[in-house]
């Protein structure tokens, strides 16, 4: 029979601190991209593009007659629509940043699964009794 683990009783203050800690790291991770001023992949139009938007026509924006009609129904003119039309994502892939992201993701799952396996064996041994291995 496996030895039964007796967990300690946690104080109310300890319970409170645990909740606060968890909430604090959630907020930290929400703020992290802003603190480090990471972009979200959207390209900021260069100044010459911004100037071009002011002088844009539906034709220069590549909009056909139906598109033009729908934009106007929505309350846009070429200048205001141009800001939306020219706002594009940049999908340039940087191998090092992709590599780091993949390494963090894979490392995270390996860590969680490996540690879980160790803990799970303790749970099973305590619940069903230790088996000779």
């Amino acid at each position: 029979m496996a030895k039964i683990y007796q967990p300690p009783k946690q104080s109310r203050l300890g319970q409170f601190i645990d909740c606060v800690f968890l909430i604090a790291i959630v907020y930290g991770s929400l703020m992290l991209p802003l603190l480090f001023n990471f972009g979200n992949g959207e390209e900021t139009p260069p100044p010459e593009t911004a100037a071009a938007v002011q002088e844009a026509t539906w034709e220069s924006l590549g909009q056909n007659a139906v598109m033009q009609q729908q934009w106007e129904k929505l309350g846009f003119d070429p200048a205001s629509a141009g800001e939306i039309i020219n706002d594009r994502f940049d999908y340039t892939i940087e191998p090092w940043s992709l590599g780091i992201t993949a390494a963090i993701l894979i490392g995270y799952f390996i860590f969680v699964l490996t540690f879980s396996e160790k803990e799970y064996r303790e749970v099973i041994d305590e619940r069903f009794g230790k088996r000779q291995r």
Binding site: S29, L30, L32, P33, F38, G39, G41, E42, Y91, T101
Partner: peptide, 13 residues
């Protein structure tokens, strides 16, 4: 593609 920083920050959490 577009939200890589958010992906990393959430994994860090």
């Amino acid at each position: 593609l577009g939200y890589g920083a958010q992906l990393i920050s959430i994994l860090v959490f």
